[in-house]
Amino acid sequence: MNFLSYPRPLADLITALSRLPGIGPKTAGRLAFYLLQEPEAAEALAQSIRAAKEEIRQCSLCCNFTDSDPCALCQSDQRDHSLLCVVEQPRDVAALEKTGEYKGLYHVLHGTLSPMEGIGPDQLRIKELLGRLEGVKEVVMAVNPTVEGETTALYLSRLLKPMGILVTRIAHGLPVGGDLEYADEVTIARALEGRRQL
């Protein structure tokens, strides 16, 4: 599709949409035309994007997305504050919460170590993790079972163990090389139960 012949704002919209994950140039074009033909939907979408961008920020404790800081989970006295579960992405928190099995708090790294993408420890929320360890007895690594996920867990366990914290890893009921996001709840629950020491 040669969208350079489109008016500039339309071409920009298509380019912006096609940068979203899972959306190729064709779908981006379809979405852009739809939005132009449905001004109300376009306005509603623009508003919710702006609202989300303005109101959602990262919790200063767990680094999950939230509209109040600290987030509801971090403030809850129903949760076990001596237990932290480390995950890669905010969506992993949602996946683990669905099981209803886990009673501790979370910490979201926002990625894994990956020198190929220029991601080292400083690019992850590791400083924030180290800053909230008071009273924490156990840290559960619930990173994805990929090479990068495992390496990140290893890095963290080397930092945490000398501090006298029990470091565990959820068991691989999970498909190796797979994503936490897609695993079903039963599998995740079982994996949580079978966590082992790192």
Partner: peptide, 14 residues
């Protein structure tokens, strides 16, 4: 994968 990551690390300016 691990080898590629290690090579990338060796090439950084850390």
């Amino acid at each position: 994968k691990a080898l590629q990551q290690k090579n990338a690390l060796l090439k950084t300016n850390l």
